[in-house]
């Protein structure tokens, strides 16, 4: 099970990952919490939710978050994939989830998740991370808190430079 780092109230902590990532070709395990692909969610999500399971959906970087809009209130997690850390589409997806679609559940970074991007991810609204570089919650805290100031509004509540100055 990959390590999960969770950001709660400004603090990063290593947590047990209660969600199981279920691949499309695998049988659904008998667990309380699963993360499914969007395709599989469309087929099986209704039944799983009705059975009282916690359900998360994994979106690949080329999938539009808007397609999830209707189901968002029922989802515990939206996992946004970074196929390579250089693929920055998930940053847009996360911001839209938070700022446009009002999603308040967990937004989780999965795939090639590299702590150098911690600050960008947090600012875009991610609050859970499955790092692929072996980094720890403490390292994520350091990386995400690196900058005392930011220059633009994003999905977090940090005051941008122009507000600090005002």
């Amino acid at each position: 099970m990959p390590t999960l780092i969770k950001l709660t109230g400004g603090a990063f902590a290593d947590l047990d990952n209660e969600f199981v990532h279920v691949a499309d070709e695998d049988d659904a395990p008998n667990v309380d919490a699963v993360i499914l692909s969007f395709t599989r969610f469309q087929a099986e999500g209704e039944a799983l939710l009705a059975a009282g399971r916690k359900v998360g959906v994994r979106l690949e970087s080329d999938q539009a978050v808007e397609d999830l809009a209707y189901d968002l209130p029922r989802l515990s997690v939206v996992a946004l994939a970074f196929p390579k850390f250089r693929d920055g589409r998930a940053f847009t997806s996360a911001r839209l989830l938070r700022e446009r679609l009002g999603f308040t559940g967990e937004v989780r970074a999965v795939g090639d998740v590299f702590r150098e991007q911690a600050g960008f991810m947090v600012r875009c609204g991610f609050d859970a991370f499955e790092p692929s570089d072996g980094s720890t919650a403490q390292e994520w805290g350091t990386a995400a808190g690196r900058f005392r100031h930011v220059y633009q509004r994003a999905a977090d509540d940090r005051a941008p430079a122009f507000e600090e100055r005002a």
Binding site: F120, C124, A154
Partner: peptide
């Protein structure tokens, strides 16, 4: 310059 500096969404275009 300020807006684009370490822009959280647009640093991995």
């Amino acid at each position: 310059r300020q807006w684009s500096t370490l822009h959280p969404e647009f640093s991995f275009l």
